[in-house]
Design a protein around this nucleic acid. Structure first.
Lengths: 166, 166
DNA sequence: CGCAGTCGCGAAATAATATTGCGCACAGGC
DNA sequence: GCCTGTGCGCAATATTATTTCGCGACTGCG
């Protein structure tokens, strides 16, 4: 099973850093029950192994004047790999698009977008997204409110699975 | 306009910490062009003012054995506030649900879910989500791949807007 | 068994960073 | 022009990060 290469301390470290990425190494070491040097070594190893992709401050878009958040469901004409990649690259170039996930089923892509106001988003939608090559249809839904926004992985589920196997 | 209470240095700090939340204060101060003590004071102020909600390690779910990521589009029978809130609370209690956004339009909620494998997700879908009170329909789409996953806010867009106004 | 190799820990020392206290400079109001 | 509030930088101190080193536990093999 995946995640088995990690021992319980490693998983604990990941869980703690997911919850608070700016925790000092001393505090982290205290929480996971080892001393600081091996704790730091483990963190570095986890970073280099790709378990930790990075650290980010969680900034509220609305506080910064990005009042509008939108999910856009996109359908393309062609699903040839070359065309999929081209669309993905265009999404990477649009700053208002924060996430771009390719899906199975009817919808080819779902995009999470932000914008300062509705008219900015409308401009992007009409002049950018909808008019982009290969785009067949775009359905958008405004986010009214966000009830939950947890990062990453539910470590409690992971631990439960592992203890069941062990 | 929102975000106006922040001066260019504050916005720069937010941008840097969004990109790398574990940057040392010394390095951050160097990048934004002030000395360390006032830089730290600004960070603390931004945290307390709610511009920074927290810091999180960005952990790859797949590396930890969460192979399945799903977007679930949920429609409810009743959109009365009490029923919306009840559904949101249920989402908060489901660890596999990482995000829950209320939308306008046909779909009432979109959920971002993770699971170790498809059967775990199916169980959650049938026994949890679909059979929950007030849920009218659930459409799910598996994430094939993720082309972009940027956190938070596009600061370049923000700066462009502010310079246009100024 | 017993022995060598490997691995990870922790203590101690050192380097770097965070944090506090204080004095100075600038801007706006009177 | 003076006074006050705001925010800076410098210097000192506390805390943390990082390296180095040696020890003990486990494992695989003779």
């Amino acid at each position: 099973m995946a995640g088995t290469k990690l021992d319980p301390i490693d998983r604990r470290i990941l869980a703690e850093l997911q919850a608070d990425g700016r925790m000092t190494n001393v505090e982290l070491a205290r929480r996971v029950g080892i001393s600081a040097p091996p704790c730091l070594r483990r963190v570095r190893t986890l970073e280099e192994a790709g378990y930790i992709r990075g650290y980010h401050a969680d900034i509220d878009p609305r506080e910064l004047g990005f009042e509008v958040q939108v999910f856009a469901m996109v359908r393309l004409h062609s699903q040839a790999e070359v065309d999929l990649s081209a669309f993905e690259q265009r999404c990477r170039d649009w700053p208002l698009v924060r996430e771009c996930h390719m899906l199975n089923g009817e919808i080819d892509f779902i995009l999470k977008c932000v914008a300062p106001d509705l008219s900015t988003f409308q401009s992007f939608l009409t002049e950018g997204l909808t008019s982009a090559a290969n785009v067949a249809s775009v359905k958008t839904s405004l986010v009214i409110r966000c009830a939950k926004d947890e990062p990453g992985v539910p470590f409690d589920v992971l631990e439960a699975r592992l203890s069941r196997t062990a």
